[in-house]
Design a protein around this nucleic acid. Sequence first.
DNA 1: GACACATTTCACGTATTTTTAAAATTAATG
DNA 2: CATTAATTTTAAAAATACGTGAAATGTGTC
Lengths: 173, 173
Amino acid sequence: MLADGRKEFIELWGDMGAHWGVPRSMTELHALLYIVGGPMNTDEIMKQLSISRGNASMTLRTLLDWGIINRTHKLHDRKDYYTAEQDVWKLFATVARARKRRELEPLAARLKSLSLKLNGDATSEGVAHRERLESMLKFIVQFDGLSDQFLSMGGLSLDILSNLIGSGKKTLP
Amino acid sequence: MLADGRKEFIELWGDMGAHWGVPRSMTELHALLYIVGGPMNTDEIMKQLSISRGNASMTLRTLLDWGIINRTHKLHDRKDYYTAEQDVWKLFATVARARKRRELEPLAARLKSLSLKLNGDATSEGVAHRERLESMLKFIVQFDGLSDQFLSMGGLSLDILSNLIGSGKKTLP
DNA sequence: GACACATTTCACGTATTTTTAAAATTAATG
DNA sequence: CATTAATTTTAAAAATACGTGAAATGTGTC
């Protein structure tokens, strides 16, 4: 039913997900909704991707949790319909923010408490270890802060920053 | 032999790796070398992490490939010794560049060829699909370019950019 | 409030990935 | 050039993650 190019896009997106440690069906399902553009219900999705109802249900829920798809309804139809966010920047920012919250922030917190724990150790070795730990921590905190700012800049950030950093060299003639 | 805090750091780093789809022993081994700071040989590493020689060997090779540890030697000792890069920015930039090359660039290439393939389809549906595909592609290409610039800025990038973007608001008093 | 349909949960089997242990290869020393 | 030590490869075992289908739980309609 879906033309070749679209199937290939879905596969491609699935490969990408697999590479990133995200279940293949997660990114595939999202790719399907993204490329189709309009709302689809669970059965249509199951058929297109040939996945089970259970899998579809769990994956849809996770995508909803991540905030990159939405649930809608049609009149006189009890089925749930799903649509993907079409703004690529929003998509990216949502996923990035979620990852940041789930991974970077807990990491920083654990490093911080570890650093405190090492305070007691006054041996030269202990001090050296704490220093290394702290430069790691410092980096992560800085990176975290920068990504906050970056993500709150909105969709034009990429253009703006490219110009800022590259001192305008790389723009088109 | 290793104090508690260090063990915890290794575990923490291992957890992080697992989250990112990288084998746990990969990031653990790197964490060990990073926190210890000095050169270690395979046997010391095996003992500390209680992993097999085979595992240690394969993991060390991969870390060498990634360019985040180095091989050294001691006089009158045939064993190989390994040290981790201590500069956190270099560490980050190396890993990021490798990921970029291995993931972002092939992705962009595949999207590009897909977009061409869809050119033949002149139905309104086909056109809509190609448009979505192309906004995705455009984003990825832009992002790719920006990260190139970012990664070539060196260790002070984080500070500099924070000030640039945040218009100096978030610096210390 | 009971029926029909839709969704979610969960225990299970399957597949993939990671680790191990042992065999093979490579290199170094006397 | 043989012997010993170190490393890499390999194949099997263990661990983990993934998807499935059926049963259970919801939800709206008559």
